[in-house]
Each structure stands twice: as structure tokens, then as C-alpha cells.
């Protein structure tokens, strides 16, 4: 069997994996709200900072 069959099969499989990942992401509702997560991901660090903040503030 020629190598081209192998290569193309692999490339199609990779493409199918991405398609599957996309379908799964849609199913999970990742495309329902496209704004909030973009804001949320910026919070992570702030929250940690806030947890140490109250002690210094309350003293």
C-alpha cells in the first residue's frame, strides 16, 4: 500500500477528531454564552489576591 493512503487516512482521522471535539463542545453549551467565559477567565488571579486581602484590610 502506498504511503499516500496512510497519510491521508491519518489526516482525515485528525480532522475527524477535531470535528468530534467541536460537536462535543457545542453539546456542552460552550457556544451558548460566548461572552461570560471570556470575562471569567480573567478573574482567576484576582480571586486569589482577594483571599489574602481581607486579613490585611481588617487589621
Amino acid at each position: 500500500m502506498s504511503v499516500i493512503y496512510v497519510l491521508i487516512t491519518i489526516s482525515i482521522i485528525v480532522a475527524l477528531v477535531f470535528l468530534y471535539a467541536f460537536v462535543k463542545a457545542v453539546k456542552q453549551g460552550q457556544f451558548d454564552d460566548t461572552y461570560t467565559p471570556s470575562v471569567r477567565m480573567l478573574f482567576e488571579d484576582e480571586t486569589k489576591k482577594a483571599e489574602t486581602n481581607p486579613k490585611t484590610e481588617n487589621q
Binding site: D32, D33, Y35, T36, V39, R40, L42, F43, E46
Partner: peptide
């Protein structure tokens, strides 16, 4: 605004029984 999202998603720190909360900004 983003402050609203932040405070509402940190509701568990204001109220004991709340396990988690998630905001959908558009809705």
C-alpha cells in the same frame, strides 16, 4: 459589567449554603 459577574460568581463566599453560581451575561 464584569464586576457583576465577579460578585455573583463569588456568591459562595457571602452565603454558606451556596455551592457555586454561574452567570450568563447575555441572558
Amino acid at each position: 459589567c464584569s464586576s457583576c459577574i465577579w460578585i455573583l460568581e463569588n456568591l459562595n463566599r457571602l452565603c454558606k449554603g451556596v455551592r457555586s453560581s454561574q452567570v450568563n451575561f447575555y441572558e
